[in-house]
């Protein structure tokens, strides 16, 4: 079966972003970018399913400018078979991304659609569910284990307080939790080989999707800093501070 993996280029997860002086947006000029960590889990899972003989072809797709080719090459180096860049300079919100991905799914007809559970920049966590809705397909979000037999996927999901197991018929949309797997490191020869794999550029305009622009970011700000704390020398001083200064712990 064919697997489609949707990935996003985001600021590296170790970097603490800064707000631009005019508060118009975060300043990501010259900041290290990389593949969204949850999306890397999604790619890794597809590759493992291919190694088990369940998946036959892995297509990685992303949306954005030419710079996004680097994460597609990363996906190809990990083991994806081909990649597709839906080219646009527009900033799309989750619903817009889901609409674009719907067009890609209709073109590619994958049996399995894998995404990360959320992007670590906008922290929305919506795209997979929205895509499933638009395609009228079943969804299994926050997957920490995926087992595929025939046209059915059994998915263990991370929920508040424990786990839940769902059975979904394929095609379905599944979003990856961090616990799904440990993504493999990309080796240099694989990176070289990935340069020869097909990477198609598809202009967004060619997909004939009407996108609304109803959500606008008015401004961004740095959250108020917590006032500086004090260091205590031992447990007794700590307890005394909590009791007398904070009035907690009786």
């Amino acid at each position: 079966m064919k697997a489609l993996i949707a990935i996003k280029r985001v600021v590296d997860y170790n970097i603490q972003v800064r707000v631009k002086a005019d508060g118009s947006n975060v300043d990501i000029d010259g900041v290290k970018m990389g593949i969204n960590p949850f999306d890397e889990n999604a790619i890794e899972e597809a590759i493992r399913l291919k190694e088990k003989g369940i998946v036959s072809e892995i297509v990685a797709v992303t949306i954005g400018g030419a710079a996004n080719q680097d994460i597609l090459r990363h996906a190809l180096a990990m083991g994806a078979d081909r990649a597709m860049l839906i080219e646009t300079q527009e900033t799309l919100h989750s619903l817009g991304v889901a609409k674009v991905l719907k067009a890609v799914v209709e073109r590619e007809q994958p049996n399995l659609i894998l995404l990360g559970k959320q992007a670590i920049d906008d922290d929305a966590g919506q795209t997979g569910q929205m895509l499933a809705a638009l395609l009228k397909l079943p969804q299994a979000t926050y997957a920490s284990q995926i087992t595929i037999e025939g046209n059915q996927a059994t998915v263990v999901r991370e929920i508040d307080g424990g786990t839940q197991t769902l059975a979904v018929s394929l095609p379905a949309v599944i979003t990856a939790d961090l616990r799904l797997n440990e993504p493999r490191y990309v080796k240099l020869p694989n990176l070289m080989m990935a340069r020869k794999k097909p990477l198609e550029n598809v202009p967004l305009d060619s997909l004939n999707i009407s996108l609304s622009h109803n959500v606008q970011q008015l401004k961004v700000a740095t959250p108020p800093a917590r006032p500086a704390g004090v260091m205590v020398k031992d447990v007794n001083e700590l307890l005394s501070k909590l009791r007398t200064h904070e009035g907690i712990l009786g």
Binding site: G125, Q129, A133, L134, T141, D160, S212, N214
Partner: peptide, 23 residues
């Protein structure tokens, strides 16, 4: 905002053809 609502509400929003704001 919880695992329950963030699973369900984006699906609802997409079928209403509207955006959603999380958390």
């Amino acid at each position: 905002h919880s695992a329950f609502s963030k699973n369900v509400l984006p699906r609802v929003a997409a079928l209403l053809d509207v955006n959603m704001l999380s958390d």
